[in-house]
């Protein structure tokens, strides 16, 4: 009989186990290294640009030092708001429809389109928005940018609404219907509140996704060095501003681009963390 404990072969197998384990550790930590590098790099370059002035003033012409990104912050906020107003009601309704009619033909096509929409390159969406909205209107506008972003946001909201609703036990809907609650009230007052955390998570992820988009805005929101609150006129946005300034030959503008990157990344980062906290805290237990 072999004594496995002292067997040489057995010892070798143990060693192999250990090596494999640390190899896994190494590879998995590899994936967070780029993120850390990016953050450190942006932080190092961008922090010096950040001061109160940076948030409250408009960009200055080339050659003048200082200047801020107020126009871009306002613009991005407007774009996100327009996109949300467009995408949230449509997205949630679509998600509810998909969950209610899982097997019919229309919902199959809707599902398919949502998936395809998600994989369409953002630049293409920008071009489409340009053809549909900018050309008929005759000029660039915040509205067209918002709609382009809204289209990008749509699949995320549809998917998250549908997935959360799917998790709600069917018995909950029956409980409400059996109390004589009409169908529409059952959806509005029972199903949607119960899936609120998932839907909001979807919205936040959607916002995080579009807040950093540049491509669809190139032909729609276009950018604007001045402060603008009208949805009918071009607006600036953070990613656009970063793109324009970073590709310019001026050192001052590079600095502002780094600062704007830091602001944008912080915003998206906070949004992600907030989403996590929100899901944890408001997750409905069945």
């Amino acid at each position: 009989m072999n004594n496995f404990d002292t067997d040489k072969h057995f010892k070798f197998r143990k060693l192999k186990n250990k090596v494999f384990k640390y190899f896994l550790y190494f590879l998995s930590s590899l994936s967070i290294i780029p993120l850390i590098l990016i953050i450190v790099h942006i932080f190092k370059n961008g922090i010096s640009a950040i001061n109160i002035n940076f948030f409250t003033s408009l960009p200055k012409p080339v050659g003048e030092s200082g200047g801020g990104i107020l126009n871009a912050i306002v613009g991005t906020s407007m774009l996100v708001m327009i996109a949300s107003v467009m995408a949230i009601p449509v997205g949630i309704s679509t998600g509810v429809y998909l969950n209610e009619h899982r097997k019919n033909r229309l919902s199959y096509y809707i599902q398919l389109s949502a998936e395809v929409l998600q994989s369409i390159p953002s630049i293409v969406i920008g071009i489409v928005a340009w053809i549909w909205i900018v050309l008929p209107m005759g000029h660039f506008s915040a509205l067209s940018g918002g709609i382009a972003l809204g289209i990008m946001m749509l699949p995320t909201i549809i998917k998250s609404t549908e997935e959360t609703l799917k998790l709600i036990p069917h018995s909950l809907k029956e409980a409400s219907l059996a109390l004589g609650v009409p169908y529409y009230k059952t959806i509005l007052k029972v199903l949607l509140p119960a899936s609120l955390s998932g839907i909001i998570t979807g919205i936040l992820i959607g916002i995080a996704r579009i807040a950093g988009e540049t491509a669809p805005l190139l032909f729609t929101a276009f950018g604007n060095p001045f402060l603008n609150f009208s949805i009918n006129k071009p607006v600036a946005s953070l990613p656009l501003l970063i793109f324009n300034y970073a590709t310019s030959p001026y050192d001052d503008w590079h600095k502002i681009a780094w600062g704007a990157s830091l602001v944008l990344i912080t915003f998206i980062f906070t949004l992600n963390i907030f989403t996590r906290l929100f899901t944890k805290k408001y997750k409905v237990k069945f």
């Binding site: 018995s171 909950l172 409980a175 409400s176 029972v190 119960a194 409905v284 069945f286």
Partner: peptide, 8 residues
Amino acid sequence: QKPNPFPT
């Protein structure tokens, strides 16, 4: 069959 109080 399954208890189904409204979770919210």
